[in-house]
Design a protein around this nucleic acid. Structure first.
Length: 271
DNA sequence: AAGTGTGCCAACCGCAGAGAC
DNA sequence: GGTCTCTGCGGTTGGCACACT
């Protein structure tokens, strides 16, 4: 006999998350910490399956997530790692701790893949080695990603989408509106959300007093909410902690030497 | 102005491995 | 040891927003 089922599918809500649901989820995780996703819908009253809750947290609400445009450094890193690892988005995301695997996957599919394809023809005229023939699912090869990345990020190349974070901001605005307009949104499962918000805003006012590792940052046009999530330390550090030095790092740092350093500032994951 | 096409992102689906019972 | 669930992952898709005709 195994465990009981994670959730019955009857009455399970699907589709976009509402700000109310986000707040409930964040509040719960703030109190209990991430993990044990099975109990989340039951204890919060969310009509979502555990899987959906986990996904929402890891891809959207988790502290330290950076949203918005990908920098040229990040692009270069993704290209590099994708060529090395293939479509191992989770592995690639571990080198870009502020980005989720879903974000990277989406960015690759919607931007980089096209850019690469487009530039593939340009490369031929530059008399450069061609990109991996199957850059959808390529493995290690001798392709010069550094040079290619430079081309990719040249002023002539189309820039990253500036609309990337728009929907996030919309949800944040909704969230803000709900916090203000709702008659008594404060008490959900005995958690004082006004206080939480107040604390978050207070923290934000303190210069450098808050690090991304400690808060959920919900961006907004004028400001952002920083919701303390001390109890989420496990997940936060799980995602941000440095992976062990492996062949990959060795390859990145030694075999390609200065190229990589110039190509991308390897973030604090190596410190 | 209305209809249609395209791009993009959030979320879902299904599979596989790990682990609980 | 076998069965079953949980969790994580990668692929896919629904639907919104914008561009184009």
């Amino acid at each position: 006999m195994g465990r009981p089922p994670c959730c019955d599918k009857i009455g399970i809500k699907k589709g976009p998350w509402t700000p109310e649901e986000d707040i409930i989820l964040v509040s719960y995780i703030q109190e209990h910490g991430p993990g044990n996703w099975r109990s989340v819908p039951t204890n919060t009253g969310l009509m979502r399956c555990s899987k959906s809750c986990r996904l929402r947290w890891t891809n959207y609400l988790r502290p330290g997530i950076k949203r918005g445009n990908f920098t040229p450094h990040e692009e270069g890193m993704i290209i590099h790692l994708q060529a090395l690892l293939g479509n191992k988005w989770a592995a690639i995301a571990s080198y870009l701790p502020q980005r989720t695997d879903n974000d990277i996957k989406n960015y690759w599919n919607t931007h980089l893949k096209k850019k690469l394809k487009k530039l593939q023809t340009e490369l031929e005229s530059h008399n450069l080695p061609l990109p991996p023939p199957n850059f959808d699912n390529s493995s290690t090869n001798n392709y010069d990603h550094h040079q290619f990345s430079k081309l990719l990020n040249s002023p002539n190349s189309s820039s990253s989408s500036s609309l990337y974070a728009s929907s996030t901001e919309n949800i944040s605005r909704l969230l803000e509106g709900w916090m203000r307009s709702s008659p008594n949104p404060s008490r959900i499962n005995n958690i004082d959300h006004d206080e939480m918000l107040h604390e978050a805003q207070k923290n934000q006012d303190q210069d450098g007093g808050v690090s991304n590792d400690d808060v959920v940052t919900i961006p907004n046009e004028k400001s952002s909410y920083n919701i303390n999530c001390e109890s989420s330390e496990v997940v936060t550090h799980e995602k941000t902690s440095p992976p062990p030095f492996t062949y990959l790092e060795k390859w990145l740092l030694e075999e390609n030497g200065g190229q990589v350093e110039e190509l991308m500032e390897l973030p604090m994951i190596f410190t």
